[in-house]
Design a protein around this nucleic acid. Sequence first.
DNA 1: TTCTGGTTCGAACGTTCGTTCGAATTTTAG
DNA 2: CTAAAATTCGAACGAACGTTCGAACCAGAA
Lengths: 214, 214
Amino acid sequence: MAKSYDQKLEFILRTAARIFAEKSYHSTSMRDISRATNVSLAGLYHYCKSKEELLFLIQDNCFGRVLERLEQRLEGVEDPITKLGIFIENHLSFFAANMSEMKVLSHEAESLRGDLYTHVSTRKDNYTKLARQILREVQQTQESKEPIDLTVATYALFGMMNWIYNWYDPQGKLKVSDLASNLLKLFLNGFLVNRVDGHLHALPTESPSVWRLS
Amino acid sequence: MAKSYDQKLEFILRTAARIFAEKSYHSTSMRDISRATNVSLAGLYHYCKSKEELLFLIQDNCFGRVLERLEQRLEGVEDPITKLGIFIENHLSFFAANMSEMKVLSHEAESLRGDLYTHVSTRKDNYTKLARQILREVQQTQESKEPIDLTVATYALFGMMNWIYNWYDPQGKLKVSDLASNLLKLFLNGFLVNRVDGHLHALPTESPSVWRLS
DNA sequence: TTCTGGTTCGAACGTTCGTTCGAATTTTAG
DNA sequence: CTAAAATTCGAACGAACGTTCGAACCAGAA
């Protein structure tokens, strides 16, 4: 029956995601996945064409669910700042509930090749462009003499959010909602407000050559 | 002669860092490095004990230089905000001048094992604690009713900064100094200012179970 | 020149990898 | 019950991996 096939595939994907997150895609062997799932080595290939397809399915399923949920929640919303709040909360709460898959999605971006890479990469691009568009709208609600560069802001936001797999423990004291509201406040205030210019010009600027070895 | 030995080792490390950054540590073979350096496979082992030591030397040398320079520049500085500016500018300008090495330092953190891992990890911890300490000092110069959580702020800062290997092109239009001043402004304003609380409470909060598969 | 110690490398070692194949087993449909 | 289809797996494949070894090479000191 198709149902039990799908369930077992999902189980394999979840287990593989956990191991990929633990020890990275390239140093995980099909034998590791076989051992962890109690499915024989050859048996795994009944559920996927290759190890690379496993990685793809994890990334694509995971991302698909983020996008689907985001579209639902953004529907009908007009206020740019509310949109941004939804975007951040959506991203972080999904991340926290699916740390392994999201770590794999963030950390193993370049482990796919060819069409599979292109497919995931394109979806990420659209996601990034959506964030950038929301930020542009947010920025236009304000007037600032020295607005933050939109590209820097967009990737700073993703950096803040995606870095959490390096430190955040969903089981720990800090709740996801607190994490989200802290990050939203941190980002939004920084993005909109202009206050500390005095300090910036005092920064010593190093010539890059200082850093080169020889 | 010892001089030429060191020079060749440095050359091998730079080349290895470039390839590790391109296709990740675990999917780079010693044969790849041999090909790129024109040093025979066996010859490489005259300059390192193992592939893992290559990775360690890249990470440790790189981090050592960041720390050394940072200590010099922080010496005698008292103002917390100036300290933070120096910290960010130091980190980013080194990152931009050594993208490969820094990508390897950020991205292959868990690829080392045992003592080598512990050694690099400990230095990173101290670096993180230093940043956290500076942020605490910055925060104490202000009084805020709802300050940003210090842990969140610290890792958000590192997320913003370390994420740049995913998008920033040091050869492109955006200069390092602009990148640094934008990120400093973005972070510092967000960290210090309290303004958008109204929007935060309006955020819908999803139950984590929504995100789980089954 | 001869000797010495650092440097280089071709060839091979044993291991592990992703994947395949054919047969055995279980499940489903008629 | 029977036959077809779906599922499972032991065993093996060739390829690629990190590393080693012994010999060859080359510099500078005597």
